[in-house]
Each structure stands twice: as structure tokens, then as C-alpha cells.
Simulated scan of single mutants.
Amino acid sequence: MTATKHSNTSSFDQPLLSESPHPPPQQYVIVLPPYPHPHRHRLLRKSCRRSLYCAATALLFLIAAGYLFWPSDPEISVVRLRLDRLHIHTRPKISLDITLDLTIRVRNIDFYSIDYDSLLVSIGYRGKNLGFVTSGGGHIKARASSYVNATLQLDGQEVLSDVILLLEDLAKGAITFDTVSGINGTLGVVFFDLPLKTKISCEVIVNTRNQTISRQSCYPEVSEVS
């Protein structure tokens, strides 16, 4: 009896599920950066512009505040100069007796008060100093003015060659005087007192007929009043 052999090769030739001839396709994951919303760019631009406008406005405000509140010298001017007495002596030497009444205005243009110790005014004629007068101190409020009256009286003032020129000016009805005014004091800035020294020179033309100032031109001086 012949035994029949059963071949099991077919069962071994079948591929297993884990050994598939076609492996599954590989999967890739691409990570992209987050893309901002299109309206976000507009918001950022508006924010930058707003910041620039705010910075420019703040800078302009600081410049304007510094210009307004920065301490400056007071303004000094001669508002009245009256020639009350003028007498010429020819003996024993040529000399003058002269009396001048002055009103000086000190204007404080700052936002701080001023305390000055004294006001000195010197008067000259054609480059020759005739004399000076000193007044007492005072207090000037912020953005205010103070008027100081002073009288300069000279007796026996020698003028020599200037007498002829003075007589010519009197005949014309106008005399030009040179005045130098100066104050020493302190400027009250917040909690501090800053030293203050200012000096101004003026050319004053006095009308001898009505005893008024017809013209005045002033400019600040650098040196101190002595």
C-alpha cells in the first residue's frame, strides 16, 4: 500500500500579514510658523504711528516748557527822564549844575519772582560820565513790573569842551544821554534762589521843550555795574 504524501508548501508560500510586499506609504508632518492675521499688520502700523506721534508731542511739549520756564534776565528801561535844572558856570571854571529825574521800569518776564538788592543808574553825555544814582532794593512778582524813581543831582560838573556841544543840543531842542542801569539780586526758582546780575545800556534822546523822551534804544551789557 503506497502512502500518499501531502505537500504543505502552499501553506508556507502564503505571505504573512506582517510581511506585506507593499509597505504602507510614509507620512510626513510639515510644521509651518503661525501666519499673523492680515489685520494684525494694520494694527501694528497704527500702534507704531501712535507711539511716534506721542513721542513727538512729548518732545515738543518739553521744548516749549523749557523755553517758557527757563530763567531769563529782567528788562530794564528808562520810561521817564526829566531835565529839571541846568545851569552853566563860566567862573572860576566851566561847569554845570544839572538835576535829572528818572523813572526806571524793571519788568520781570519770568514765571518766578525777583528780589533785587539795589538799582544803579549812571548817566553820561557824549561819552563822558556825569554821575550815578543808587536806589534801594525791592521785590518784583512773576510776570510783573516795578517802577523805581531816582534823582541825579550834580553841582559843578566839569564838561570843558562839551559845553559848546551841549549849547548846540539845547538850541536844537534835543539832548542825547547815555544811561547804564543794572540790578543785583536773586531769582526765586521753585525752592532755589539763583543769583541775578543784569545790566543794560540805553541811548536816550530827551526833548528839552516838553521834557519827554522822544526816542530810546537799549541793548544788554556783559560787564557788571561797578
Rank of each mutant, 00 (worst) to 15 (best):
K128C: 07
R107S: 14
F132C: 12
G137C: 02
S113M: 09
A174E: 01
T134C: 09
A150T: 10
F111S: 11
I175A: 13
K172A: 12
S161N: 12
G173L: 06
L130I: 03
G173F: 13
T186L: 08
S118K: 15
G182R: 02
A171F: 15
L160P: 05
V180S: 08
D155E: 07
S113F: 06
V180K: 12
G182Q: 10
K141D: 05
L154G: 08
D178Y: 01
L130H: 07
I114R: 00
G185Q: 10
K128Y: 07
T134E: 14
L154F: 13
K141V: 07
L170V: 09
L170K: 15
S113E: 00
Q153T: 07
F111H: 04
V159K: 10
R107G: 10
I114S: 00
F132T: 12
V180L: 15
V106L: 05
V190D: 07
V159W: 09
V190Q: 04
S145C: 11
G185L: 06
H139I: 13
I109T: 10
V163D: 11
T186V: 07
R126V: 06
S118L: 14
V106K: 11
N129F: 05
D155T: 10
I123Y: 02
S145P: 13
G131K: 02
L165V: 05
L152D: 02
V159G: 06
Q153F: 06
N108S: 09
N129C: 09
G182E: 03
I114M: 00
N184E: 14
I123R: 01
L130C: 09
H139R: 06
I123A: 13
F132P: 05
N149F: 14
V106S: 11
G173K: 10
G137Y: 00
V133M: 03
I175P: 13
H139E: 08
V148E: 04
L166H: 06
S181T: 10
G185F: 03
L160D: 13
V189A: 01
Q153A: 06
F177M: 03
